[in-house]
Design a protein around this nucleic acid. Structure first.
Lengths: 242, 242
DNA sequence: CGCATGCTTGATGGAGATCAACGAACGTGG
DNA sequence: CCACGTTCGTTGATCTCCATCAAGCATGCG
């Protein structure tokens, strides 16, 4: 329950060999590493930094409501640039590890300086911010007015895009679920019990299968995609073909 | 229901005299205006452009689900930079006017060029993208696991930050509601009937008053803020003090 | 007026939260 | 090896809040 802040350990910070970052020039990379630190975090561990790059694992932005409810408003996958700063107001929500995670914490001022001085850094920054804005809009659309089944279907496709399972997902259509059921529930806005029931029903209806608790195999991906997009006949027709 | 695309009319495009834009240099302003067009849109009118600046009114990003459900995943207020582009994939959601709106459509390539060549444009772009990302995270947290009452309370504060009522909001704490009830419902993820009931209950409990249908007066702003943050005793206690 | 649009109110049912208990996996220590 | 505790996931039974359906108003406009 109680997560603790973590000091940096003795490991060499490095720019990951992932999508947007590997194309940066050597000078840009080394400039970003000035003042950067490699944070190796356990699950449920809070992160005090507000900008950086995910090297491995999953981070989430967690809001704690006054009465104890927790919600997760954003997920960050490996390779994602995290930048929680906002203009005037103080940032809201806490950056928390949802799994064992390596995080390259980048000094915010250095990030700004690099973006101002180097065109490739600025391009990557703008690209990342745009991409994440689009993902947040998609996510908001997913959770605003969809049934739990549709939300989970959409989440499966979101997790399928994670770096970790790009190979397996493409070949065997197996999606790794890197977070706990509770985190899924808090991200899509249902209760863990409902997550469990919905996944079971998706398997019963033949859309997915469950090799183990951490993996989901896509059996009928087109149908699942249609479900994620809100394409259920009319009313939810749960046991229509039961 | 059916919105139609709109051609540009004969009016002079101009950079608005609003917050982030008025501080740009004259050269940057004139460069952004190359290829820009002033779109004057009626309510429910679609916008074919994916980047620009709102001069007046409200725009929303609207997702149409396969079975006819509509959701609004983002709101843009006057002064906001709209940039719906995403990296690889095609942008999702349609830009639609939720009220009579003046929109300065900016050519996407020109926006990129200006951001690449001019530091002040890049700074504004990055600032806007960060700000909107933060707002989207807040919004996702608002709609994920909150009661309709809490969602509406949060929405009132979001609308209070709109440019239109900055003066009245500060003096008399009166918030202008620029969109229809249906749009509110589709944005916060409830039905119009529920919006109506919740607003009535907020007024009954003395948190707000309703001068007319388009305005909300904040009577007990701290309590409303606490409600928006999820601070309801335990269970919703609707008729507890009936 | 006659019709359309938008907002509100009431009555009802159902989907998901809630409460409670069980089961599986894992590590620890005797 | 087994007893024990913890964590996480699952399953079942009940309840309640919101969607749904339906109708009633107010306003605007031809």
């Amino acid at each position: 329950m109680e997560a603790q802040l973590h000091g940096l350990r003795q490991s060499g910070p490095y720019i990951p060999n992932l999508q947007p970052w590997c194309s940066l020039s050597a000078e840009s990379k080394s400039q970003l590493l000035v003042g950067a630190s490699l944070e190796q975090m356990e699950r449920a561990e809070l992160c005090a930094f507000s900008s950086g790059i995910i090297l491995k694992g999953v981070l989430g932005v967690c809001y704690e409501l006054s009465d104890g409810r927790r919600v997760i408003s954003a997920l960050y996958r490996p390779g994602a640039l995290v930048d929680l700063r906002r203009g005037e107001r103080a940032p809201q929500g806490a950056l928390v590890a949802l799994a064992a995670t390596d995080f390259l914490a980048i000094d915010s001022k250095m990030l700004d300086t690099a973006a101002r001085g180097r065109a490739d850094v600025a391009a990557v920054l703008i690209h990342q911010l745009r991409e994440q804005g689009a993902r947040m809009r998609d996510h908001a659309a997913d959770i605003v007015n969809k049934t739990p089944m549709e939300r989970l279907a959409a989440l499966i496709f979101e997790l399928a895009r994670f770096e970790t399972n790009s190979e397996r997902a493409r070949t065997h259509r197996i999606v790794h679920i890197p977070v706990r059921r509770v985190d899924i529930a808090e991200y899509v806005g249902v209760k863990p019990e409902t997550v469990s029931r919905v996944i079971r029903r998706l398997a019963q209806e033949g859309l997915i299968s469950l090799p183990d608790k951490d993996h989901i195999e896509l059996i009928d991906a087109p149908m699942l995609r249609q479900l994620a997009n809100g394409g259920r006949p009319r009313r939810s027709t749960r046991r229509a073909y039961g």
